[in-house]
Design a protein around this nucleic acid. Structure first.
Lengths: 138, 138
DNA sequence: CCGCATCCGATAGGATACTG
DNA sequence: CAGTATCCTATCGGATGCGG
């Protein structure tokens, strides 16, 4: 019984009302799934074509076997990825996006585009902020 | 000198190329800022109007004073929020979205809408998955 | 080949107490 | 009122080793 983030929605009445009214509750479901270290890359590669486990693991540089498994399981649980086990020896497992997963991937591209367009602005803001802080503490 | 996630982009050549080509690097900058526990709510409230510190803290149910400060500092550092200190006694500090912050908030609404539209689908997938798992282990 | 279990370090975030 | 500093816990994710 994996833990989810429903607690944000099911706390006190005020708590629940806060999230419901602000439409901030539902987006957390998605954000909590997608904002981890590897999900985004997995979705990205799977959006091109289906991959088997090791193939995906090789492409996603730096991921441990454990996290590759965990990540794919979570995506599968949320209906974003379909897992197909071929009963061969050695075993072969294929992963592909579901329509829902492909749909989400498209939606995330919007945020991705925004990030690319505004990254310089953010970097500049950070540099300015850090300079300001250094100046104060100096 | 706060730590960022640039490490994802500046690792080995392969590592960097991976992110650059897949447009997955830039979006992490934004995702890492916005996917924490409180940033989204802060952006949401500030998108309506400016708030002073305690006012915002009262609205965001459950946030500790520490995390309210930390969250706002991060948003400020990235140029999403403007912080104005009024040198009165007692002190008064106002927070408001910058144009960049407002812009980002709008962009996130896209993801938020998607989440609302597909939440039932995700919930169903989870229920089905969990049922399947329970059945296996039983 | 794929996945699970275990251990372990790093980090996020809560509680509390203290300053200007 | 707004912020800082300290401490403490829970969770994330990496490393390694075993099993089907």
């Amino acid at each position: 019984m994996p833990k989810t983030s429903v607690e944000y929605c099911t706390g006190t009445d005020d708590h629940a009302r806060q999230w419901d009214h602000r439409a901030g509750c539902e987006v957390r479901t998605v954000l909590d799934r997608v904002s981890d270290k590897w999900s985004l890359l997995a979705l990205s590669y799977l959006s091109e074509r289906s991959h088997r486990f090791s193939e995906l693991r090789r492409k996603i540089d730096g991921v441990s076997q454990r996290m590759m498994t965990v990540t794919l399981r979570q995506l599968e649980r949320d209906g974003l990825v379909l897992r197909t086990v071929h009963p061969t020896v050695p075993p072969r497992v294929d992963y592909e996006l579901t329509p829902l997963g492909a749909n989400l991937h498209q939606t995330i591209q919007v945020l991705s585009s925004w990030s690319e367009q505004h990254e310089a602005e953010i970097a500049a803001a950070r540099a300015a902020y850090d300079a300001r802080i250094s100046a104060v503490s100096a």
